[in-house]
Design a binder for these strands. Structure first.
Lengths: 357, 357
DNA sequence: CTGTTAGCGCCTTCAG
DNA sequence: CTGAAGGCGCTAACAG
């Protein structure tokens, strides 16, 4: 009915000073019960909603909120299995502490920048994303604690990663041990990453430019290459397809890798979503997995265990990663932490010895 | 290195007044390029992160954020299929407008209250939840626009609901038309709802207390009762089990309804998650669905179409509901809106004529 | 165009 | 235990 009610209105109505009214809300034990009662009644009658957090926050207080930038549209927190797991981890610690989780739209660089610039939060969880450096710079300018996920951005910004090298190496060794010698690699490409000077690159384009891509991809590729090299296989000679993780891209990538490397007996994928697409595409072409073709993924999303055949993959603790990230963002350690979470080779049904010829 | 840098620091360093510095960031076109450049450089050198949104917000500006209280732990936004769909709808709108989505922990009343009291957002989407009245009161006290979902709380608070009565009636009529005469009802119970004076009531307890429960349940039950009554079946005589929607509760509820009403040829459920549990439990007991038992759900979550047999259910536009809610919260209409979204009977494989005896 | 002056709503000294 | 004054960091309205 009336305009906004302020603390001063309540104080006046109750016939006390502003300071006293403030105390009623913040240190009720320090004010005489009778007066307190009077103020509370006045507040109730005026429909006063309590001290405005907007002002309170300015006083330097905490907001009890974590900002999460995923490097993708917020909707992908619900649509994408990987992000869903990660966000669930973040959410769990928010629930523990009654903290709010603020998801920041970051489908494009500008939106993300604005979000990070304006979010009123206590800390940021910044998941690896294109343009992440800019976002981190903004957050640091605001002197807000941040933790980078799946990415390192220097010693003084906390980071959480998984053992990508170890995982990729384990995957390669597994295949090698089974007897495979002819490989193909399906790598991911981050949405919005510039490739060949363009942002539109839904799938494909074999090449060596991985070294310029997002850091985790580099690690995984490097480990593949190293292990294969140990076995006398030059990574240069291994067909490579890069593809986005969203929309049709995985399917297109799967098709392309099978087209470009029909002789490969094993496909190393850097994400389960790719691996699952490869399995489907292979089946479509009448190639039996794992009898004709072995496929290994990375991540171990829920779908991996349910596919037909179930996917051999490198399991990373997605949800735990979210949890750890949120904890660090919510109360940052005095000195930055750099965690590397362990991964694990999970052997299921999509890998087997190569067909004998 | 330094403490927080403020606009005044930048102004001083650049040798301009505070107001000018402010203009550089807010109305750059209104300041001479040379000066602007100077201020920008000073900002850069000092590591100034731009105007602090905490202060900006106090000026009465918008934050560009929606608060969402789901009446559940934040983690359920990712774990629960229904909420996931709803939140995805909200997220879509946030993405469109580059708005932040702040999920407020509301697993218990106190957490929710604190969240609503402290969130710095432009509007609230409050999904039906136990204690929702208290939350709405707080939000109103703060003079923040709110939209209630799946619930009406008076004419001056916008609300979005689905046509629960129509849907439930359609479900009942469908079963009646197939020839069913012996029914059972599996209703939901909201987490935390007080029942029989206690908060712990994982599943079961037949009774008539539905009239005191959350409003949508009342509508659905009422419509069931009405339609059955038209066919000469007294709702009083229809076995009823109430059960939570989370954890083991749906399974327990399913077991109980089959135990308590072994003679029923059709089970009317108020949520797909219950209906799916009933199907599974029936199969476990060797009762074929739909030959021996018909089951109908409500919601049409993605799993409904994939179950065996696929579920006949009342489809409600979950995601659209989220979208509409977010839009209203983000820019509230001058006068409150009260929307009722349509639902639709989707006949799939879980319903058939009753077995002849 | 630029600088000065009031607040935004609250909290926290500091005297009474 | 109370009341008055200053400031959190910024923006807006007004003079210059």
């Amino acid at each position: 009915m009336s305009g906004p009610v302020r603390l001063s209105d309540v104080a006046r109505a109750a016939g006390v000073s502003l300071g006293t009214a403030s105390n009623v809300f913040n240190r009720p034990e320090g004010v005489r019960p009778q007066i307190r009662e009077r103020v509370e009644r006045a507040a109730r009658e005026l429909g006063y909603g309590g001290p405005d957090p907007k002002a309170r926050v300015l006083m330097g207080g905490k907001v009890n909120a974590v900002g999460v930038v995923m490097g993708a549209a917020v909707v992908h927190a619900f649509d994408n299995v990987y992000l869903r797991g990660f966000m669930a981890g973040v959410a769990e610690v928010c629930d523990e502490r009654w903290a709010a989780m603020v998801a920041i739209s970051s489908q494009d660089a500008e939106a993300a920048a604005r979000g990070v610039r304006n979010a009123v939060v206590d800390g940021f969880v910044i998941h690896n994303a294109p343009h992440i450096e800019g976002l981190i710079a903004i957050a640091r300018g605001r002197r807000i604690p941040i933790v980078a996920v799946d990415r390192t951005v220097g010693p003084d910004v906390s980071s959480i990663r998984v053992d990508s090298r170890g995982g990729a190496a384990a995957a390669a060794r597994h295949l090698l041990a089974l007897g495979h010698r002819r490989f193909a690699i399906l790598s991911w490409l981050q949405e919005g990453a510039a490739v060949d000077g363009t942002n539109y690159h839904p799938a494909g384009a074999t090449g060596q430019r991985l070294v310029e891509a997002a850091i985790d991809v580099v690690d995984r590729y490097g480990a593949f290459a190293e292990v294969l090299a140990e076995a006398g296989i030059a990574a240069n000679a291994v067909p490579l397809v890069e593809s986005y993780l969203t929309g049709d891209a995985p399917d297109i990538g799967a098709r392309m890798i099978l087209d470009k490397a029909p002789e490969a007996t094993a496909v190393l994928c850097m994400a389960d979503i790719h691996a699952l697409a490869v399995i489907e595409e292979a089946k479509r072409r009448g190639r039996s997995v794992p009898r004709d073709l072995s496929v290994v993924g990375f991540d171990d999303v829920p779908e991996a265990a349910a596919s037909e055949p179930p996917l051999t993959t490198i399991a990373q603790p997605i949800r735990e990663k979210g949890r750890v990230a949120a904890r660090i963002a919510l109360d940052p350690p005095a000195t930055p932490r750099h965690l590397v979470l362990p991964v694990e080779l999970v052997v299921r049904g999509s890998t087997a010895p190569p067909p004998r010829e």
